[in-house]
Design a binder for these strands. Sequence first.
DNA 1: AAAGCGGGGAG
DNA 2: CTCCCAGCTTT
Length: 351
Amino acid sequence: MNYQYTNEFRLNLVEWFNKEKRDLPWRRTSDPYKIWVSEVMLQQTRVDTVIPYYNRFLEKYPTLQDLAFAPQEELLKMWEGLGYYSRARNLQAGVKEVVEKYNAVVPDNRHDISKLKGVGPYTAGAVLSIAYQKAEHAVDGNVMRVLSRVLHIEEDIALPKTRKVFEEAVEMLIDEQYPGDFNQALMDLGAMICTPTSPKCLLCPVRDYCIAFSEGDADKLPIKSKKVKTKKVQFKVFVAMNQEGQCLLEKRPSEGLLADMWQFPMIEVTEKADSEEVFQENYNVQILNHIDKELLKFKHIFSHLTWELECTQVQIEQKSELPDAVQFLTIEQIKALPMPVPMLKILNVLN
DNA sequence: AAAGCGGGGAG
DNA sequence: CTCCCAGCTTT
């Protein structure tokens, strides 16, 4: 694209944005901290899903300091249901760093802000351009889709190295005067007009500058290879009550899937061993009788694997000391703990 | 460069 | 069903 076209492209794009932009909570502030929170929540997560979480989160943690000193379990509870829970811990780590090293002021340059936990190339550019009006690229899936069509870029967007191609494209195109609006305009365009399937080219403010539109193959772009192979794992889940009506709960390890989240004890179903025997041995308890053999049976689908859960409610007694990270809790206590969605489903059918 | 990491909505 | 979303971290 030559200079003349580049200039018209940004003018049309930003003008469209000013007229059509969505009214979103994080667009009513210029606080870098709040914009940072919104960007982290929006990683791999839809706008409609994020809105209520964002509002509750900032009501609870209005400032960097509030979040920096929040108990981790309370923080995870605020994040409950949003997924990718490491985002919450990384965000808090990053916020702590800003409080300690930068006098509670979010850095305004890519070098420093990129060192913060959980802040990658996209989030860095988004915060810098939106909160600080810096002409920095913020390339996400939306931007890659839009620009792959406008510039007819046929490189595989699933490959890590391809992101650089789009970052350089943004550096050429970005509106130096309104970089935040420019970046957000690309995202809104991707969300509302230049959608993954059935792009609404006839409504597009920049179709005159779009090579894919003129070639008539916008729906063939972007090119993305990577296919996901999903594995299946079966578990028996034990809703195990003691004589006092308390329930056995366990905290997951601090690394890996659903780190630090709480769950009902679950045993992988194999041909080799009986799940109930393994449960009793691993948790040092004895099953007295079955209250409900099939309390609930359902699947939970993650992006990379599927859990098939069979839940049994049993009466148990403790035989010896409980393992670390395992305890008896009342239903009320359980409700205050951060739990992944599949466990919330089980909790919801109790009583 | 590839894998791991949630959950939900759209088609 | 499949795709993919305002991605980052670890290996």
